[in-house]
Simulated scan of single mutants.
Amino acid sequence: MSENHTAGAAALGALSFTVSGRIARPPAEVYEAVADPEQLSRYFTTAGARGRLEPGAGVSWDFADFPGRFPVTVVEATPPERIVIEWDAAPGANDTGTTRTTFTFAPIDDGARTLVTITEESWNATELGAKHAFGNCEGWTGMLAAMKAWVEHGINLREGFYA
Rank of each mutant, 00 (worst) to 15 (best):
D65K: 08
V74L: 08
L15F: 12
G58E: 15
W150G: 00
T99P: 08
R82D: 04
H5N: 13
A93K: 00
Q39Y: 08
N94Y: 06
R100P: 01
S60W: 14
F161D: 13
A9T: 11
F63Y: 15
I85T: 11
R82F: 07
T98L: 07
A47N: 06
V72F: 09
S16R: 13
E29M: 05
L40I: 05
V116E: 01
T117I: 00
A130F: 13
I155D: 02
W150F: 07
R22A: 02
V59K: 07
T104Y: 01
A7K: 14
L53S: 02
A35G: 05
V116L: 04
H132A: 01
G154T: 05
A146Q: 02
T101L: 09
L128Q: 10
R158E: 06
A130N: 09
E54Q: 15
G51E: 07
D95A: 15
F134D: 15
G92S: 05
E138G: 15
F66Q: 11
T114C: 02
T101H: 02
P67I: 00
P71F: 10
V30I: 13
G135T: 06
R25W: 10
P26L: 04
D109C: 08
A133K: 11
F103M: 01
G160L: 07
A47P: 06
A89S: 07
H5Q: 12
T96M: 08
I85Y: 01
E29W: 05
A163S: 11
V34E: 01
E159Q: 09
G21N: 09
A33M: 06
G51P: 11
A77M: 02
E38L: 14
D95C: 06
R100V: 14
E3I: 09
A7F: 09
T78H: 14
T114N: 03
P55A: 00
R158G: 00
G111I: 06
P37L: 11
P55T: 01
E81A: 14
P91C: 03
C137R: 11
V30H: 02
